[in-house]
């Protein structure tokens, strides 16, 4: 029920060309009740050209070790998937948001978030994505996803999220 609603919302966002950031949505099935011929709903997380696929199936984010901005092997795998999706969907641009956990001073974390976002951008460029389609943004520790004060939350907050949008992007 929920996922059906989400699929509709994601589809609507896609149609409007708005950016989506649906990473927190669970991909727990429930699609295909009125399945199209391809075996998935257009715009669903099973549709390889949908933003939902980018956000959920490939993964819109990568995580970092404490005070690090280098990409782990898992992160590189995710980013290779992001690059392939962007190659197949040339009308999309992306803003890469870098974040830090709360264990750091505000200014340093802004700079660290910028490093992380840039590490993702550079990797996507090496995978063939035009740099002009990618912008970077840092939130430092200003926008934590998880709010507890231990490593289980910090690990999820040390992230770079690739936020895709159809059209000219946000420039």
């Amino acid at each position: 029920m929920n996922s059906l609603k989400i699929a509709v919302l994601v589809g609507a966002a896609f149609a409007l060309g708005a950016c989506t950031n649906a990473g927190r949505f669970d991909n727990d099935g429930g699609f295909g009740a009125d399945g199209a011929g391809a075996g998935f709903d257009v715009g669903s997380a099973q549709d390889p050209n949908s933003p939902a696929y980018f956000n959920q199936t490939i993964g819109d984010r990568v995580l970092f070790l404490v005070d690090q901005s280098s990409l782990t092997p898992q992160a590189q795998t995710v980013l290779a998937g992001q690059a392939a999706w962007l190659a197949n969907n040339p009308e999309f641009t992306a803003v890469i948001e870098g974040h830090a956990d709360e264990q750091g001073t505000r200014e340093y974390n802004l700079a660290l978030g910028a490093r992380r976002a840039n590490a993702v951008k550079e990797y996507l460029v090496t995978q063939g994505v035009a740099a002009t389609r990618l912008q970077t943004l840092t939130f430092g520790k200003e926008r934590p996803l998880e709010i507890c004060s231990d490593e289980s939350c910090y690990a999820k907050n040390r992230r770079a999220v690739t936020v895709i949008a159809a059209g000219g992007g946000t420039s």
Partner: peptide, 9 residues
Amino acid sequence: FSLTTGGNT
């Protein structure tokens, strides 16, 4: 102030 370009501050 700090200015960040290309990930470098």
